[in-house]
């Protein structure tokens, strides 16, 4: 097993300079996620206007994998509608779990994280921000 499969340059870059770390002026949707196996916690803040995500704020500091995944999330879902973001999150979840082949969808930087599938115990780390996003969207749906 090669460590560099997991910690590719793209992943390490997102880990060392994570995006979406500035606190938001206004938070419209918020969710907390936790990985009970390691105790990592992530907080997601979304600033939404007319059904579109304007800004994403990620809080909490996890391992390189979950930090990079959160950073990629921040980059990917900014500008999307809530519906689009939900679709992307579900696909990412499928790709990280190995249910969808990465080639079938455009995963952007997240493609670099699919190396995690060779490290089954670490898949949860990569999933954490995406699962948290899905929960946030679900909460929002319930409200409306």
């Amino acid at each position: 097993m090669n460590l560099d499969d997991l910690y590719r340059d793209v992943v390490m870059d997102h880990y060392k300079n994570p995006r979406g770390r500035e606190p938001l002026e206004r938070v419209d949707i918020h969710a907390e996620g936790a990985n009970p196996s390691c105790g990592d916690e992530v907080g997601l803040d979304l600033q939404v206007e007319e059904g579109r995500i304007l800004k994403v704020g990620v809080r909490g500091r996890g391992c390189a994998v979950s930090t990079a995944s959160g950073s990629i999330l921040a980059e990917m879902v900014e500008g999307l509608t809530l519906e689009e973001a939900g679709r992307v999150a579900r696909r990412m979840k499928g790709a990280l779990k190995g249910e969808v082949r990465p080639g079938e969808i455009d995963m952007g930087d997240l493609e670099a994280l699919t190396g995690v599938r060779k490290f089954p115990v670490r898949i949860k780390c990569a999933l954490l921000p995406w699962v948290t996003l899905l929960e946030a969207l679900l909460e929002k749906e319930k409200e409306t």
Partner: peptide, 8 residues
Amino acid sequence: HPHDLATF
């Protein structure tokens, strides 16, 4: 992070 350290 402990997870990164353990994997490494």
